Simulated scan of single mutants.
Amino acid sequence: MKLTIGGGLKLAFRPWVEGLENVPAEGPAILASNHLSFSDSFFLPAVLDRKVTFIAKAEYFTTPGVKGKLTAAFFKGVGQLPVDRSGARGAGEAAVRSGIDVLERGELFGIYPEGTRSPDGRLYRGKPGGLARVALATGAPVIPVAMIDTEKVQPPGKVVPKMIRPGIRIGKPLDFSRYMGMDGDRFILRSVTDEVMYEIMKLSGQEYVDIYATVAKRLIAEAAKRSAQDEADGA
């Protein structure tokens, strides 16, 4: 199914890509990407010869009915791995364990250090609990990736994509093996995460915001709510 979906995406959207030579032909590696659109997890695997495994909400695989079965088949086909996210701590541990398992099999593991999609196209602070812990537990190289214009292909809340040509820039692998086994040191985790986010920023050209995307989403929602209330009060 990966070949069918990937071939269809490349034919329809013709994504351009730079730095394919930075992805190893074999062996474990972590692809750490910015996150602009739901479609990021489809475009990146589409341009690679190797399978990339991302984690996805378990609900995508367990929804009942015909639509649920089709959704589950689609996500499995493009290399998505179900993770139960009930409970923040449990979700984080499950994601880390899943990433380690993928890398121990010598495969590629894809992760979004921001933890969620950018609400406004800017690059937000990376969360150290996932990417850095997986990297330091396995010693696998981290390859920074920048998705370009995918938010224009499928803006948040839109089901039908626009026929816009997105891009992908793949940076040189980062070696953090010198910190291997130090995944319990929060200062090391933060340092590793920040270094990766800096490389993603250089590749993407995005404005960097030193807060978490989840916080930004909450602030945006609160501002929209206040604006709506002010309009209602003034009516």
Score class of each variant (00 low, 15 high):
Pro82Phe: 07
Gly171Asp: 12
Ile211Cys: 07
Pro161Trp: 08
Ser86Thr: 15
Ser37Ala: 01
Asp233Cys: 06
Leu131Glu: 06
Pro128Lys: 13
Phe74Asn: 05
Ile55Val: 12
Ile164Gln: 09
Met163Ser: 10
Ile111Asn: 07
Ser33Tyr: 13
Val192Gly: 09
Phe42Tyr: 09
Thr116Asn: 06
Gly234Asp: 10
Ala29Lys: 04
Gln206Glu: 12
Gly68Gln: 02
Val66Gly: 13
Phe74Ala: 06
Tyr208Glu: 05
Gly65Pro: 10
Thr214Arg: 12
Arg218Ser: 14
Lys162Phe: 14
Ser177Leu: 12
Val23Cys: 01
Val66Glu: 11
Val83Asn: 03
Gly8Lys: 04
Ile170Lys: 06
Lys67Val: 14
Ile148Asp: 06
Val96Gln: 10
Val192Cys: 10
Leu203Phe: 03
Ala72Thr: 02
Tyr60Pro: 09
Pro82Thr: 10
Gly184Arg: 04
Leu219Phe: 09
Asp49Cys: 08
Ile188Gln: 08
Tyr60Asn: 08
Glu93Met: 11
Gly205Trp: 04
Leu81Val: 15
Asp120Lys: 03
Leu31Tyr: 08
Gly68His: 04
Gly8Trp: 11
Phe54Leu: 09
Val145Thr: 09
Thr62Tyr: 13
Asp210Phe: 11
Ala228Gly: 05
Glu222Ala: 12
Pro45Asp: 09
Gly27Trp: 03
Gly27Tyr: 05
Glu21Ala: 08
Leu219Trp: 13
Gly19Ile: 05
Leu131Val: 05
Ala140Leu: 03
Phe187Ile: 10
Leu189Trp: 00
Pro64Met: 01
Leu189Tyr: 03
Gly157Arg: 04
Ala223Met: 13
Phe74Lys: 02
Pro64Trp: 06
Asp210Gly: 08
Tyr208Thr: 07
Glu114Thr: 02
Pro128Trp: 05
Leu44Gly: 01
Ala135Asn: 03
Glu26Leu: 08
Arg165Cys: 04
Ala216Ile: 13
Ala132Ile: 03
Gly205Ile: 02
Met201Ile: 10
Lys202Gly: 08
Met201Thr: 13
Thr150Phe: 05
Leu20Val: 08
Ile5Asp: 09
Trp16His: 05
Phe61Asp: 03
Phe109Trp: 11
Gly87Met: 04
Ala135Cys: 05
Gly87Trp: 00
Leu123Pro: 01
Leu9Ile: 15
Ala213Pro: 03
Asn34Lys: 01
Ile100Arg: 01
Ser98His: 11
Ile100Gln: 08
Ala25Pro: 08
Arg122Asn: 14
Thr138Ser: 00
